[in-house]
Amino acid sequence: MAEPIVIEGQRAWLKHYGEGSRAVALGLLNFVARRFHLDALRPPPHRGGAGACGIEARRLLELKAQGVHVPEVIGQGDTVLVLEHTGDSFNACLRKADMAGRDRLVGAAIAAIAEAHRNGAYFGQPLPRNMTWDGQRVGFIDFEEDPLEVMDQAQAQARDWLMFGYGVARYYDDRPQALEAMLAAAMEQAGKPVVEHAHAVTGRLRRLARMLRRAGKSGRALAHAILVVHGASTFGFVVLAVLCLDLLGDGELDLFDLIG
């Protein structure tokens, strides 16, 4: 739980870490993810109290060193962090924005995630509720879990795209192709293992997506996220395949001459 406070005239956040209480739900999700080979969706351990506080403090320092816009840790106790205010809720900004404004916000978020990935970073749950916007930069918050406890970095980065796609899909209910196009551009730059993981997981979930389309707004959002990320990673998959074939042919990337 986080509550706003003021320190020397500056807004900050006091975050308390209670004891974890999601063991049964996480165990079930882990079973399903293992059973259907959805490795990028395996849930990391959800610790409470001092464990969660320590993980978040460590991850914030790591992400800051990788150039990600995350809050500074102003103060720390056993089960409490005092965090810098980094902007308004990204979710609230999306709700208030018109169509063009949403595209700008989502484009900025995609660019921020892609840049972080290039620097070796990963997030875990880059959902709009765990992001901020200060008018210029996208910020990221909420790092009580570490996906690398149950998966490798490529899977963690694929998970980021799946989570982000799900989080913003509801804002593209009538324009999923626009979101797919933006994500596809990012997938062109993603590493091959990341694209492969995203493509494989969403491929296994496509049948579920078709059923979820008739399950209300939340169901449609999940369905769109699955299909959009699958489509975007398909494009990235094709680009990677073409580049590999081009390189194997004569040792040079002639495709770049066509692009230029």
Rank of each mutant, 00 (worst) to 15 (best):
Val6Ala: 10
Arg11Tyr: 00
His16Arg: 15
Ala25Asp: 13
Leu28Ser: 02
Leu28Cys: 04
Leu29Pro: 00
Leu29Met: 12
Ala33Tyr: 04
Arg34Ala: 14
Arg34Leu: 12
His37Leu: 14
Ala40Tyr: 01
Leu41Asp: 09
Pro44Ile: 07
His46Met: 05
Gly51Glu: 15
Glu56Cys: 06
Arg58Met: 07
Leu60Ala: 01
Leu60Glu: 00
Glu62Trp: 08
Lys64Val: 00
Gly67Glu: 09
Gly67Trp: 07
Glu72Met: 08
Val82Ala: 11
Glu84Lys: 08
Asn91Tyr: 15
Cys93Tyr: 00
Leu94Ala: 09
Ala97Glu: 05
Ala100Ser: 14
Asp103Lys: 13
Asp103Met: 12
Val106Trp: 03
Gly107Trp: 06
Ile110Cys: 14
Gly124Lys: 08
Gln125Cys: 13
Gln125Glu: 14
Pro128Gly: 10
Pro128Tyr: 11
Met131Val: 05
Gly139Pro: 03
Asp142Val: 12
Glu144Gly: 15
Pro147Cys: 11
Val150Ser: 05
Gln153Asp: 07
Ala154Pro: 01
Gly165Arg: 07
Gly167Ser: 09
Arg170Val: 06
Tyr172Asn: 03
Pro176Glu: 05
Ala185Gly: 01
Glu188Ser: 08
Pro193Thr: 00
Val194Cys: 00
Val195Cys: 12
Glu196Ser: 10
Leu205Gly: 04
Arg207Cys: 04
Leu208Ser: 15
Arg210Asp: 12
Lys217Trp: 01
Ser218Trp: 05
Gly219Phe: 01
Ile226His: 10
Leu227His: 07
Leu227Pro: 01
Ala232Asp: 02
Gly236Glu: 04
Val239Tyr: 01
Val239Arg: 11
Ala241Pro: 00
Leu245Val: 12
Leu245Tyr: 09
Asp246Gln: 12
Gly249Cys: 10
Asp250Leu: 08
Leu253Gln: 15
